[in-house]
C-alpha cells in the first residue's frame, strides 16, 4: 500500500481504484483534492455556508458508499458534483415541504418577476472588477428563489442541458425554460441595480 506521500502523486483514476478496494487514505486524498469545489457548489445551491458544509460532507459519505457504481464515464469530480447537487436538491425539497406556503410559491415560475419589466439594455457588469463582480453575482443569486437559483446554477455553472435539468429537478422542460428565463431576468435587474447604486 502506498505511503501517505505517494497518494498525492497518484491520478484521480488510480486513487478511485484504490478507494474502491476500501483504501480510506486514497479516498481522503480525493476528498482533499476536490473538497473546495464540492463545498463551493453546495454553497451556490444552498446559499448558506453551514448548509454547504453539512451537505458537502453528506455528499462525500454517499460518494464512498456508491464508489462501486463509479465506472469512469465522467471525471471523478463531475461524478461527485452530481451527487452533491442531488443531496442539495433533496435538502431543498425537504425545506420546501417544511416551509409555509408563501407568495413566492404561489407565483413559483415567475418568482415575482414582473412580466413587463423593461429590458436591461446595457451590460450591467461592465467596468466591474472580477472580484467585485463575483461578489455582486453571489449577492444577486441569494435574492433568487431556490427554484430559480437551482435551475440557473445547473445551467450556467454545471453546464447542463434543459432536458438533464428537467430530469434532475423532476420538472418538465417547459418549467425549466420558464424558470431559467425569469431567473436570468431577475439577475439582470439585480445587477443593473448594482450599477445604479454605484
Amino acid at each position: 500500500m502506498p505511503s501517505q506521500k505517494d497518494y498525492s502523486s497518484l491520478e484521480d483514476a488510480a486513487l478511485v481504484k484504490l478507494a474502491q478496494k476500501g483504501d480510506t487514505l486514497a479516498f481522503e486524498e480525493l476528498v482533499f483534492r476536490h473538497r473546495d469545489k464540492i463545498y463551493a457548489r453546495a454553497y451556490t445551491m444552498m446559499h448558506s455556508e453551514d448548509a454547504a458544509l453539512d451537505l458537502s460532507q453528506e455528499a462525500w459519505v454517499k460518494a464512498w458508499q456508491r464508489l462501486a457504481q463509479f465506472q469512469g464515464d465522467s471525471s471523478f469530480a463531475t461524478w461527485v458534483t452530481r451527487i452533491t447537487i442531488n443531496v442539495c436538491l433533496d435538502q431543498l425539497r425537504k425545506n420546501k415541504r417544511q416551509r409555509a406556503e408563501s407568495i413566492e410559491e404561489l407565483n413559483e415560475e415567475s418568482g415575482g418577476v414582473d412580466r413587463q419589466m423593461p429590458v436591461v439594455t446595457v451590460d450591467p457588469t461592465e467596468r466591474l472588477e472580477r472580484g467585485e463582480l463575483r461578489q455582486k453575482i453571489d449577492t444577486a443569486l441569494g435574492k433568487l428563489t431556490e427554484e430559480h437559483r437551482t435551475v440557473l446554477v445547473l445551467h450556467e455553472f454545471q453546464e447542463m442541458e434543459y432536458k438533464d435539468i428537467a430530469q434532475t429537478v423532476g420538472v418538465s422542460i417547459g418549467t425549466v425554460m420558464s424558470r431559467l428565463f425569469y431567473a436570468r431576468r431577475k439577475m439582470a435587474a439585480l445587477l443593473a441595480d448594482v450599477r445604479k447604486t454605484e
Binding site: 463551493a40 436591461v120 451590460d123 450591467p124 457588469t125 463582480l133 450556467e156 428565463f181 439582470a188
Partner: peptide, 25 residues
C-alpha cells in the same frame, strides 16, 4: 431581449463564488 439574456449569461459564466472549506483537511 436577446442582448439582456446574453449579458446575464456572460456575467455568470466563470463567476461562481470561490469559497474554501473553512476547516482543516
Amino acid at each position: 431581449m436577446r442582448a439582456e439574456l446574453k449579458h446575464t449569461r456572460a456575467a455568470l459564466v466563470g463567476f461562481e463564488r470561490r469559497i474554501l472549506v473553512p476547516e482543516t483537511r
